[in-house]
C-alpha cells in the first residue's frame, strides 16, 4: 500500500472503525469508560513520547503539563465562568508558559541529569499546587461543569462517558495527526538529528537547544490538551494529577510498544487500561502483571513489543547502501513498523 491515496483511504477506514469500536465491543458503559480513558491517557502519553522518542530524553515533568491543562480548565470554567473553548486556549497558553520556563532551565542538561531536573520540577509544581489557594490547595477544585463546546446552533456537549467518546476520540486523532506531521516536518527531522548526532547537527547549522525547546513546547501542549479534556470528564482536579500513577502510565505506555512508533503509546496505554478494566487481578495482581510485563519487555525486547513484528522491511532498510541522511541512519536504528511505511 504505497500510493498516498490508498494509504489515506486505509487510514480513513481505520479511523471510522476506531470511532465505532465502542459499539462493536457491545456499547456498554464500561466499554465507553475504558475507551474514553484510553483515548485521553494515550493523548497524554504522546506528549512524553515526542520527548522520549525524538529527543531521546526521559522527561519526568510531563504530569505537570497534564495537570496544567486540567487546572487551567478548572479555574477558567469554575472560578471565572469561561467556556470550554476559552479553557482550551488557556490550557494551551498555560502549558506553553510553564514549558518555556522549565525548558529554559532543564534543556541544557542531558540524560540522567535531565531526568533528575525534570523530576525536581514536577515535585515543585505539585507542592505549589498543594499550597496555593488560587489552585484550590490540597482540596483541589470541584464542580467543573459538563463539557460544552457548542458553536452557534450546533450543540456539542458531554457529561457521561458515551457522550465524551466523540470528543476523546477526536482529540486522539488530532494528536496522532500532529505527531505524525511533526515527525515528517523539518523540526522533527532536526530534532532527530540533534538527538542522534548532535555534532553533525551543529555542523549543519542547527541550534540544538532551540530545537529541543521547540519540541518541548509541542510536547507540553499535547499533554495539556489531554489534561483539559480529562478535567471535564472527571469534573474535579486535585494534586493527585501529579501522582506517579500518571507518570507510570505515560512511561509504560510509551515503552511497552516501542519508541518512535506512531501507534505505540496508544497500543501501550490500551493494553494497560484494558487489562485493568476487563481482566483485573486486583490492585496487587495488576501491579504484579505490570511489573512482569515491563521487565519482560525491557529484558527480552528492549525496543518494545513492536520489535517482534516481522522484520522484512527493517532488514531491507538495514541492507540498503550506506545513507548519509542522518534521519535515515536513525531509521536503521529504530526500524519503522508497517503502519509508518513510506515515511521520511
Amino acid at each position: 500500500m504505497t500510493h498516498p491515496l490508498a494509504r489515506l483511504a486505509f487510514a480513513g477506514v481505520l479511523a471510522v472503525l476506531g470511532f465505532l469500536l465502542p459499539r462493536l465491543l457491545g456499547g456498554s458503559s464500561l466499554v465507553y469508560d475504558t475507551l474514553v480513558a484510553i483515548a485521553i491517557f494515550s493523548a497524554m502519553s504522546y506528549g512524553l513520547d515526542v520527548i522520549l522518542s525524538d529527543l531521546g530524553e526521559i522527561s519526568l515533568v510531563h504530569t505537570a503539563f497534564f495537570a496544567t491543562g486540567a487546572y487551567a480548565a478548572a479555574i477558567l470554567t469554575v472560578t471565572y465562568g469561561f467556556s470550554a473553548w476559552t479553557a482550551l486556549a488557556g490550557a494551551v497558553l498555560a502549558a506553553l508558559a510553564l514549558a518555556l520556563v522549565l525548558g529554559v532551565i532543564t534543556l541544557r542538561t542531558r540524560e540522567f541529569a535531565f531526568s533528575l531536573v525534570t523530576y525536581a520540577a514536577a515535585v515543585v509544581c505539585m507542592n505549589v499546587a498543594s499550597n496555593w489557594d488560587f489552585l484550590g490547595g490540597s482540596d483541589g477544585i470541584v464542580g467543573i461543569p459538563p463539557l460544552d463546546l457548542s458553536i452557534g446552533g450546533i450543540e456539542l456537549t458531554a457529561g457521561r462517558s458515551a457522550e465524551f467518546w466523540p470528543f476523546a476520540y477526536l482529540l486522539l486523532l488530532l494528536t496522532l495527526y500532529v505527531v505524525h506531521r511533526f515527525r515528517r516536518s523539518r523540526l522533527g527531522q532536526a530534532a532527530l538529528m540533534v538527538h542522534m548526532n548532535p555534532r553533525l547537527a551543529t555542523m549543519c547549522g542547527l541550534d540544538g537547544n532551540r530545537i529541543r525547546l521547540q519540541v518541548f513546547l509541542l510536547s507540553a501542549v499535547i499533554s495539556a490538551a489531554a489534561g483539559w479534556l480529562y478535567a471535564f470528564q472527571r469534573a474535579y482536579v486535585g494534586t493527585d494529577l501529579f501522582d506517579t500513577y500518571f507518570l507510570v502510565l505515560m512511561l509504560t505506555g510509551v515503552i511497552l510498544a516501542g519508541r518512535r512508533i506512531l501507534l505505540g503509546p496508544l497500543l501501550g496505554t490500551a493494553l494497560l487500561l484494558s487489562q485493568k478494566s476487563f481482566a483485573s487481578l486486583g490492585a496487587y495482581g495488576d501491579k504484579l502483571v505490570l511489573g512482569v510485563v515491563l521487565v519482560g519487555v525491557l529484558c527480552l525486547c528492549p525496543k518494545g513489543l513492536a520489535s517482534l513484528w516481522p522484520r522484512r522491511r527493517a532488514a531491507a532498510v538495514t541492507d540498503a547502501p550506506a545513507n548519509t541522511n542522518p534521519a535515515n541512519t536513525n531509521k536503521a536504528r529504530f526500524p519503522s513498523p508497517v503502519w509508518e511505511r513510506g515515511q521520511g
Binding site: 482540596d139 483541589g140 464542580g143 457521561r160 472527571r234 469534573a235 474535579y236 486535585g238 493527585d240
Partner: peptide, 12 residues
C-alpha cells in the same frame, strides 16, 4: 481526594 473525584462522576 478520592471521594471528591468520584462524587461528580456518580452524581452525573
Amino acid at each position: 481526594p478520592v471521594t471528591l473525584a468520584m462524587q461528580s462522576v456518580l452524581a452525573r
